[in-house]
Design a protein around this nucleic acid. Structure first.
Lengths: 198, 198
DNA sequence: GTGTGTGAATGTTTTCACAGCG
DNA sequence: CGCTGTGAAAACATTCACACAC
């Protein structure tokens, strides 16, 4: 559903007034029926014979997805990957502000990366409360990832994005998403392998 | 399914001989029945009363997923994100070698990052053929991503991992996976928003 | 007893097809 | 007419429950 939002943002930049489920389908590589079903789940946003008003639908989705506010994010683990995310320009303009960064390495603590001063992980609990952190991003090494995630959960964080290449255990009221590029690559090799037998 | 492989690798490091679907279920946050179904789709790998032999199952999965060989990857777009991936230590040990890197910026071309010399995108087609590239990773800016992807498709690449925040169009015989951290975050805010009404 | 492999039952998602509105 | 919204149908996925192997 967020990808609907993304493509509509693009359409707005292209000054499109209106869009049909067919056009959306083409852009998102899905069937028009799928898109109509998905959207109708939340309400009736379209006009028969016309399609969907881009900016109106964008507004509706913004509210539905909870993107009508800015979310505060804490990043734990300022290695190469963490740094890349701190420098990544797409987060802030799309509604996610990295409000704090943490590491365990004393050498790193106090340094400033991407406009944020790196704090000691010991201060995590405090900062989460004081700064009203909503979401945690875990870029700590695998050996410490589960520990960090447990800590975030204890702090009351309900949404975690993990870059650690392992399946972490969390209570079921906590949303956990994992990003592991290797997993994505491996999902494709299965199909590559069967290429001769077509 | 690749996550099965990942957790089994971990179990092997822990010197586990044998594992039950229940234990796997706990580690992967799924039901034992699910795991048995998935595995039985490819064959009968378990022993009743015992469970699955870790190293044997690992071997089977390696073959099934096509991980019994090394895959050559080309990375296009050596910005911050591309660099982070070139330096990312998990790719090579898990079977993916970045065999070539490309950029459009003349300032970058010829420089060496993470053991790979950056080449001009113009040489992409040639290199893909000569070096037997199997997979493309796109870390180019959004404005150029579709163009780069089209080029990879023309070169005969059948698997692409894109970090560009847009849904690219590819022929249906080409596997495309997208990684967009913002999309992952937005998928969670929907649930965060409804937190008061539980 | 313990834990797999599997048909049968259940639940969920995707597709179809069409009434009805602009 | 064109395109949405939506029940009904089809496809797909998950869970159950139990026979059977160790």
């Amino acid at each position: 559903m967020p990808s609907y939002f993304r493509v509509l943002s693009l359409l707005e930049e292209e000054n499109a007034e209106v869009v049909s489920s067919q056009e959306l389908g083409k852009r998102l590589q899905m069937t028009p029926a799928q898109i109509r079903k998905d959207l109708s789940y939340f309400g009736k946003f379209g006009k028969q014979g016309k399609g969907y008003n881009v900016s109106k639908l964008l507004g509706e989705l913004r509210q539905i997805l909870g993107l009508d506010r800015e979310w505060s994010v804490a990043l734990i683990g300022v290695g190469r990957l963490g740094r890349a995310l701190l420098d990544y320009g797409e987060l802030t303009p799309r509604g996610f502000k990295i409000a704090a960064a943490f590491d365990i390495d004393p050498q790193q603590i106090g340094k400033k990366v991407g406009g944020v001063v790196i704090q000691d992980v010991a201060e995590l609990a405090n900062t989460v409360k004081n700064r009203g952190i909503d979401i945690g991003i875990v870029t700590a090494p695998p050996s410490q990832a589960q520990q960090v995630i447990d800590c975030l959960v204890e702090c009351g964080i309900k949404a975690i994005l993990s870059y650690a290449p392992l399946t972490a255990r969390v209570p079921k009221d906590v949303r956990l998403r994992e990003i592991d590029p290797v997993l994505a690559l491996q999902a494709m090799t299965y199909h590559l392998k069967c290429l001769g037998s077509s």
